[in-house]
């Protein structure tokens, strides 16, 4: 059984801000039914670009639900510029930490938030820029590089824990190792 913190358990059993936000003016979606988890984030942003309300709908495990719930609590009241700086580490910290195999749940939160912000600002995020590394979970080299840099990831296992990449058929593990090595080489 996973060792979830009391805060994770609380946010799973009593999630905050669940459901569709009727007057949302920004939406960010990430994940899929096939992947095993998905998050749809709703934001209501006022004319000063402040998030006055946020809600979520999540399909996934307890830590996915808790991460989504935590995310909405963290960003309510922030301006979009402030929210854009929220990291997956902030989400995990808010919950008192996540098991390392579940860190991808916090990454999902950050990803949905970025998409919602882009949605509000009318910016088209180029879908999955970069070269596809993990076909199973559709993760690109640029996403891996970002996660490695942001979280100081060292091993392919770390990358799988944070992005799921390499956690399916495993054929891309060598390529992931090369990407990690390239980041290290850059210093």
């Amino acid at each position: 059984m996973w060792e979830y913190t009391d805060k994770v358990k609380d946010h799973f059993m009593h999630p905050r801000n669940v459901g569709e936000l009727k007057d949302a003016n920004a939406v960010g979606e990430t994940g899929s039914l096939n992947c095993g988890d998905a998050l749809k984030l709703f934001l209501k942003v006022d004319e000063n670009e402040r998030i006055v309300d946020a809600s979520f709908m999540t399909f996934g495990c307890a830590s996915a639900v808790a991460s989504s719930s935590a995310l909405t609590e963290i960003i309510k009241g922030m301006t979009l510029d402030e929210a854009a700086k929220v990291t997956n580490g902030d989400i995990a910290d808010y919950l008192g930490g996540l098991p390392k195999e579940k860190m991808h749940c916090s990454v999902m939160g950050k990803s949905a938030l970025q998409k919602a912000i882009a949605d509000y600002r009318g910016i088209q995020i180029m879908e999955k820029p970069g070269e596809m590394v993990c076909e199973c979970f559709e993760v690109t080299d640029l996403e891996i590089i970002d996660a490695v840099k942001a979280n100081g990831l060292e091993t392919t296992e770390d990358v799988t824990n944070y992005l799921k990449a390499g956690g399916g058929c495993g054929k891309c593990l060598d390529r992931i190792e090369e990407v990690i090595a390239s980041v290290k080489a850059e210093g």
């Binding site: 059993m13 095993g36 996934g60 495990c61 307890a62 996915a64």
Partner: peptide, 22 residues
């Protein structure tokens, strides 16, 4: 998702397994 179901069963003392990944 299976893990979420299992934890809700667990709260009631019900033991089962899931075929899910998580």
């Amino acid at each position: 998702e299976g893990e979420s179901i299992l934890l809700m069963l667990d709260k009631e003392g019900i033991c089962a397994s899931s075929g899910s990944a998580c």
